[in-house]
Design a protein around this nucleic acid. Structure first.
Lengths: 187, 187
DNA sequence: CGGAGACCATACGGCAGCGTATCGATTCGC
DNA sequence: GCGAATCGATACGCTGCCGTATGGTCTCCG
C-alpha cells in the first residue's frame, strides 16, 4: 500500500538516499522528482526552495544522530566495554552501509559548508562525550578517556575511507584485532 | 617573474587546488580558467576535454603518492618506531592541510567513481604494505602488523573527518596519546 | 622578413539545473 | 454537494557549464 500522496518526509528520505549515493551535489530537486516519479511542482509545494530542504536535512540528521548515540551508549546492564563493542559493531564492517555513506557524505559536505560543519561539530561533540564516558567507566582518567574516544571515532570514520579493495581478504581479521586494541579487555 | 604562458602543469595544479577546496565537482574548466585568468580556449589547447584532465590528475596523484610513501618509510638509520612516528607526523594535526584536503576529496571521489576507486585502492595497497613492514619490524607477526597498519591509516584519514571544532582545546593532547597507542613503545 | 606553430580570445550551440507562474485534479470540511 | 485547501503537471526564463569553431597575436627560425 503506497501512500498516494507525498509529504515532506518522502522528499527528505529521497534526499538522504541521494546524499548517500552522490554527496550533497546530487540532492537536486529535479533528480529527486524523477526518483519519486513526480515533477518538481510537488517539491515546491512542500518546500520553499532547495535551501529549505537542505536545512531540514541538517536539522533532522543532527537530532537523529544525537538521540541515537545517547540510546546506544545507555548501558542497561551492559558493562562499559560491552557498550563500546556494541557501538563499534554498529558502524563496523558492512553493516549499515547506508548509515556510513550518509556519515561520510555529511562530513565531506561539512568540509566546504560552514552550516554543515557546525552541525557535524555538534554531533561529534555529543558522541565524543558519550563514548568518553564509557572509557572513563573502564577506569581511564579524563584525558585518556577523551583520547580513546578520539581514536575510536577516527577509526570508525577512517575505516569507511580506506579502500576495501586494497586487500579484501585481510580486512576482516584486521578489524577484529583493531577492536581489541580500541577497547582494551582488562584496561 | 610569472611564466607568461601556461602549460599542462599549471592547469593540473589549479585543478588540485579546486579539488582540495571543493571536491571533484569543483574542478570545472571554466572555473579553473577564471582562477588562472585565461579563457577556456587555453584549456582546450592543452587538454582534449575535461576527462583528460581528470585522468591526468588520477595518474599524477597515484604515482606521486606511491613514490612519497616509499621514500617516507625508507628508514635510513631510523628505527621502525621512529619511521612510524614520522609518517604519522606528516599527516597529523594542522601540518599539510592541502595534502589532507586532497586526500579526503580523493576518497570522496572514489566513493562514486570506479576509476578513482581503483587508483585509491592501489595507493592504499602500497601504503598498507609499507607501514605493515614497519610494524613487522617491531616484532609483530603478519596479521598483527597488517591490523596495526589498518588502524594507523584509518586513524589518519578519520582524524581529518572529525570536526575540529567539537572540542578544539582537547585535540592536541588526544593526538599525543593516540600516537602512543598507535605506535607502541616497547611492543 | 615571412611563414609556421604555439597559445589564447571570442563567439556559438546545447544541455541541465533552479525557481516561478499558472492551471488541473483530488480531497476534505461544512 | 460545493468551495477551499491540498497536491501535482506543464511551460517558461535564467544561469552555469561543456565542447567546438574560428580567428587573433606572439615567438622562433630559416
Amino acid at each position: 500500500m503506497e501512500a498516494k500522496t507525498l509529504n515532506r518526509e518522502s522528499w527528505l528520505s529521497a534526499a538522504f538516499s541521494a546524499l548517500a549515493e552522490g554527496g550533497v551535489e546530487q540532492v537536486r530537486v529535479e533528480l529527486l522528482a524523477k526518483r519519486l516519479k513526480v515533477t518538481k511542482g510537488s517539491f515546491y509545494w512542500h518546500f520553499r526552495d532547495r535551501m529549505e530542504l537542505v536545512e531540514a536535512m541538517l536539522e533532522g540528521w543532527k537530532t537523529g544522530r544525537i538521540e541515537a548515540i545517547k540510546a546506544q551508549t545507555r548501558l542497561d546492564g551492559r558493562t562499559p566495554a560491552e557498550g563500546l563493542r556494541y557501538v563499534l559493531s554498529l558502524y563496523g564492517g558492512s553493516s549499515n552501509p547506508r548509515g556510513i555513506a550518509i556519515e561520510l557524505a555529511m562530513r565531506d559536505w561539512a568540509r566546504r559548508d560552514p552550516r554543515a560543519s557546525e552541525i557535524v561539530a555538534e554531533v561529534d561533540r555529543e558522541r565524543l562525550r558519550c563514548v568518553s564516558d564509557l572509557f572513563a567507566g573502564l577506569g581511564l582518567d579524563s584525558d585518556d578517556a577523551f583520547a580513546r574516544a578520539y581514536l575510536f571515532y577516527s577509526f570508525i570514520f577512517g575505516e569507511g575511507l580506506l579502500a576495501r579493495s586494497a586487500a579484501p581478504d585481510r580486512f576482516e581479521k584486521a578489524r577484529d584485532i583493531c577492536g581489541k586494541v580500541l577497547v582494551p579487555e582488562g584496561v
